[in-house]
Simulated scan of single mutants.
Amino acid sequence: MSLALPGTGPVLGIWAHPDDEVYLSGGLMAAARAAGRRVVCVTATRGEHGTGDPERWPPERLAATRDAELTASLAALGVTEHHQLGLPDGGCAAQPFDTVVARLAAIVAEVRPGVVVTFGPDGFTGHPDHRMVSAWAEAARSRAAPAARLLYPRLTAEFADTWRDLYDRLALFPTADLPWRAAPDRIAVRLRLDDASADRKLVALRAQASQTAELVALLGVETMRAWACTEETFVDALPARALDFARGC
């Protein structure tokens, strides 16, 4: 595995729902921990509405299950520090912006990260909670650790094209302009996970079985591993005025 993060500071991930962190940065977190770096994960919601079967999974039951699943998933990656904000799943945009940013900024100030990882302004999938978390994270980082490097997960054109049929099949992206794809010269961090690292990330994903078991059954273990566990790529955050350019990459 190659990991090209500068410095030796802590890595702080800020995400919306349980499983966002492992899909988008599980390899990065594991590699950072293996290198002896502190890794802290923040999750905005408990994901209590993340089901198509609310009769089987009423919100409180699903929230408790996802809490336990996330703890096990992070442990598989070597991560033991986690903050749960407990905000309503699907309701992030309705929360008072300054209040949430203040909570996050307090965590950022304590962790003193060298790197912050979160969604880009597009939310990666366009989910409103993802977009809101991106805005909160950027504001908290600017307030409490402006020198920290801010990274967004992005797909390369090569990766997106390789898995185009799967993305279409799963309807993961609601509009034609998602996901934003990074031009090769914009990739700041590219992790190619070796076999052991890919297996570890797969274990972490499968630990969140309420969200991943049906997908693994649908795709098969080998396809799930090849798609979700072999590569992670990130770009450095851009100033707001540059985002229109990035959309066209």
Rank of each mutant, 00 (worst) to 15 (best):
A157N: 07
R143P: 14
L151R: 05
Q95K: 03
E138G: 10
A63R: 00
E55D: 10
V108Q: 10
A196C: 10
T175E: 10
Q208F: 15
D98Q: 12
D199Y: 09
V216N: 12
T51V: 01
D67H: 05
V115A: 05
T125N: 03
D98M: 13
M1D: 07
R225S: 09
A209F: 04
T212H: 14
E81R: 02
E138L: 13
G47H: 00
G123I: 03
Y23H: 12
D236L: 14
A204P: 15
R181G: 10
L62Q: 01
A137R: 01
C41Q: 06
A105C: 13
F159Y: 03
A144W: 11
W227N: 04
R38D: 09
L215Q: 09
L191S: 04
G36Y: 11
D165G: 14
G126V: 06
A93D: 04
R192F: 12
P179A: 11
A64M: 09
R46N: 04
L193D: 00
P146F: 11
P121G: 08
Y167F: 15
R186F: 02
L150S: 13
S210F: 07
T162R: 08
G220R: 00
P113H: 04
L202M: 15
L77F: 02
T8D: 13
V79I: 06
M1R: 03
A147K: 03
P58D: 01
A32G: 08
W57D: 07
A183C: 02
F119Q: 07
A204S: 15
A34Q: 05
R38A: 02
H130T: 09
